[in-house]
């Protein structure tokens, strides 16, 4: 595993035609930590994710990852740096098998193009085999090793979420961004997913940036929490510090609870 650099977000501002989705937000994800971004609906969490993965353009501010400035990069360039993410709503190819979906995650690590693939060039065949082996390992790790041959669209929701996480891991990322990994899951599925995230972190030593509404999960897993409300950063610290912050209570529960 290569060195994991720090992700720093400095004064990040995003405006959509008059609406300020993010207002001068700054935070840093220390190497190998699990950093959670929380906040009520519309706080700007997803916008933040989309800027970090190159999907949206920042209006101003800087995001750097190991000496690379991300805010001006196309999405696939960000992916090439070793930043992988999952999506709040599943973004898989429903008709492809689990294995082929995982293989799309390894795209950036492979080289065969149209000509070599079409002609079944020996180097392309060898590369395909090597990467399939690794994808199967990762599938085992993520608990979907028995479902490799199933079309993804036919799997239950919880498994599809796992496939997405496994696909992100297939890119051998240095920073993994999880957008609501347990949203819409039942209690058992939540518990299993939380365990998987802990395992990923402990065994791979990569940084994880997590957006999640499940407070119990965030408080249990995160090393550091950043709280957003209406696009502004209102609190930042360890889970315990953030939990008692009056600003945070106000944002979540209203004026009365905070006083």
């Amino acid at each position: 595993m290569t060195e994991v650099p720090e992700l720093t977000v400095e004064n990040l501002t995003v405006r959509f035609a008059g609406i300020v989705a993010l207002d001068a937000v700054s935070f840093a994800v220390a190497p190998g930590t699990l950093h959670a971004v929380i906040g009520p609906n519309g706080a700007g969490k997803s916008t933040c994710f989309n800027v970090l993965s190159g999907v949206y353009r920042a209006t101003s501010g800087r995001v750097t990852f190991g000496g690379h400035e991300l805010t001006s990069m196309a999405p696939h360039k960000v992916g090439e740096l070793g930043i992988a993410r999952t999506f709040q709503n599943l973004a898989l190819s429903p008709m492809l098998t689990v294995e082929d979906n995982l293989m799309t995650g390894r795209h950036r690590l492979m080289r065969s193009g149209f000509v070599r693939s079409g002609l079944r060039w020996p180097s392309a065949v060898r590369e395909e085999r090597l990467h399939r082996d690794r994808a199967r390992e990762i599938a085992e790790f993520a608990g979907i090793g028995k479902k490799l041959a199933h079309p993804v669209g036919a799997l239950p929701y919880g498994d599809q979420k796992r496939v997405e996480l496994a696909r992100a891991l297939c890119g051998e990322p240095r920073l993994l961004m999880l957008d609501e990994p347990v949203a819409g899951m039942n209690a058992t599925e939540r518990h299993e997913m939380a365990e998987l995230i802990v395992t990923v972190r402990e065994s791979l030593g990569i940084s994880i940036l997590l957006v999640e509404h499940d407070m119990g999960l965030v408080m249990r897993l995160a090393d550091h929490v950043t709280v957003l409300d209406f696009g502004r950063l209102i609190a930042s610290g360890t889970p315990a510090e953030v939990q008692n912050d009056p600003e945070v209570l106000r944002a979540y529960l209203g004026e009365e609870a905070a006083s």
Partner: peptide, 23 residues
């Protein structure tokens, strides 16, 4: 192989394809 899977993902989930590192 690799290009075919990329093509399918572009068809099904264009944004995800870009984020995964597919130009």
């Amino acid at each position: 192989s690799r290009p075919g899977r990329a093509m399918n993902l572009i068809r099904d989930q264009q944004t995800a394809a870009g984020v995964i590192g597919i130009p």
